[in-house]
Design a protein around this nucleic acid. Structure first.
Length: 136
DNA sequence: GTTGAGCGTT
């Protein structure tokens, strides 16, 4: 037995699991956008990875959403891009992350599963004391 | 006319 190899193997056997926040999914969090970047520009930048058909270019991204400030109406500089397949999202991230759009470098990360309104509560009748017999 | 890390419905 070679303990040296075991030691090295143990060192190499490091945890490779990534946090859920960084887990690849079909949604991408794009930040570092310029103030003048709109959804159209972002879509044009990301949907270039779509599949090319005989006639049209199929957009890979299903949804492109940029967060705007409701007070001033200007973009907050970040947005979200949704893809049909995780592979496309990973490819798009790998290809566009670190690149520059409209003069500003992009910071792309996998989006968190954020839902409007926060944690959704299962609709349930607040009557947990058991259903009392109304008239019987 | 401004600012620059971030995780969402403007």
């Amino acid at each position: 037995m070679n303990r040296g190899l075991l030691s090295i193997a143990k060192k190499l056997n490091k945890q490779v699991d990534v946090p859920t926040s960084c887990a690849p999914n079909s949604k991408l969090f794009v930040a570092g956008l310029s103030w003048s970047v709109d959804e159209k520009s972002l879509k044009d930048a990301f949907c270039s990875f779509g599949e090319v058909t005989e006639v049209y270019l199929v957009d890979a991204c299903d949804l492109v959403r940029i967060m705007y400030d409701k007070d001033s109406g200007r973009s907050r500089g970040f947005g979200f891009v949704s893809f049909s397949k995780e592979d496309q999202a990973v490819s798009a991230k790998d290809a566009m992350d670190g690149k520059a759009l409209l003069g500003r470098p992009l910071r792309i990360s996998f989006a968190l599963e954020k839902v409007r309104g926060g944690p959704v509560v299962v609709p349930r009748v607040p009557n947990t004391g058991g259903t009392p017999d109304r008239n019987h």
